[in-house]
């Protein structure tokens, strides 16, 4: 434990004093504040004179002020935080020769990888929390509403899911820094994987669904449409970004009751749905997206597990 803590402390200090972190943090803070400001102004205008709906505060995260909403922004560019923090974690030490020094100290070898991963996660957590607090402050100023306990809890869960999502990409970056000796290669490989899973998988899911379950213009049955949508959904879930956006959109928006875009409802259900237009309690929102969250946590752990195993089994000669 002493080893993990020592490595963790040193890595955390390194992160916070690096220019890389400062630039990233400044950039993300700036963009977030601008977006929340725009969203807040838009909301204020829209709600002028109207009765305020419930959960105005949470709308800050979901309403599209400028180009996209804040939660979309984190979904798109959050992974970049993880990648930037992790892509040279191991191979930089290898190229400067400090890794062979570390492994010859009386600490277990996994303390190095655990300490580095935990320091990365802590950095991300501190970054996310501070940005969320700044946003909340700005939101309260603009909207003049104070979030209730339910809203605060929802934001906390939103942050937790974001933390796992970004940590997954941190894990990927550290894995590549173990696998590749060149820093440039690991950076490029992790960015390539990020682009593939975030953008191409969602695009590819459409294309593949069209190929697997084609929909003709005139003679499409209901069954076909359902099958098509389901195939497309299943394929797009391969992307961590889709997992993340689906789960957070339900968490952050109490009015949203399902991650599905297409819902089959019978006449009676339709009636009950229109009569009960009330928000879901937090526990129910969590229940709706629990499988998504579970998968996000699982891929993060699996990714770290692979990194751990590869690092532990590597010949020291290669260090």
């Amino acid at each position: 434990m002493r080893g993990v803590y020592t490595v963790f402390r040193k890595e955390l200090a390194d992160h916070f004093s690096s220019y890389r972190f400062l630039i990233l943090f400044a950039l993300i803070t700036m963009v977030s504040l601008i977006m929340v400001y725009m969203a807040g102004m838009g909301l204020r205008e829209a709600l002028e004179g109207a009765v305020k709906p419930k959960f105005v505060f949470l709308m800050l995260f979901t309403s599209t002020g400028a180009l996209f909403s804040l939660s979309q922004f984190v979904a798109f560019f959050g992974p970049l935080i993880g990648l930037v923090i992790g892509f040279d974690a191991i191979n930089r030490e290898r190229s400067t020769g400090t890794l062979s020094k570390l492994v010859s100290q009386p600490i277990y070898r996994d303390a190095i990888i655990n300490g580095k991963f935990l320091a990365g996660v802590a950095t991300i957590a501190i970054m996310l929390t501070s940005i969320a607090l700044m946003i909340s402050g700005l939101g309260i100023l603009i909207l003049g509403v104070v979030p209730g306990i339910d809203e605060i809890l929802r934001v906390v869960f939103y942050l937790l899911i974001s933390l796992f999502y970004i940590s997954f990409w941190l894990g990927v970056a550290i894995l590549f820094s173990v696998l590749f000796r060149s820093i440039a290669t690991s950076a490029l490989a992790s960015v390539a994987l990020w682009i593939f899973f975030s953008f191409f998988v969602t695009l590819g899911a459409n294309v593949l669904a069209n190929a697997l379950v084609p929909m003709e213009k005139d003679a499409t049955t209901v069954e076909q449409v359902i099958k098509h949508v389901r195939t497309q959904k299943a394929l797009s879930l391969l992307s961590p970004m889709v997992l993340y956006t689906d789960s957070t959109s339900v968490i952050i928006d109490p009015m949203k009751k399902s991650t599905r875009s297409l819902m089959l409802v019978g006449p009676l259900e339709e009636l009950s749905l229109s009569r009960f237009q009330n928000p879901l309690p937090l526990s129910q929102s969590l229940l709706v997206v629990f499988p998504y969250i579970a998968v996000l946590v699982a891929i993060t752990l699996v990714c770290f597990g692979i990194t751990y195993a590869v690092f532990m089994l590597q010949e020291i000669r290669a260090l």
Partner: peptide, 27 residues
Amino acid sequence: GYLPEHLGFYEDMTARENLRYVSRLNG
């Protein structure tokens, strides 16, 4: 104590900080 052939230090840290890190790793 082992001094590897290609020994490396954390270049951005001072000599004392490097030594401090090693002493912490040694408990």
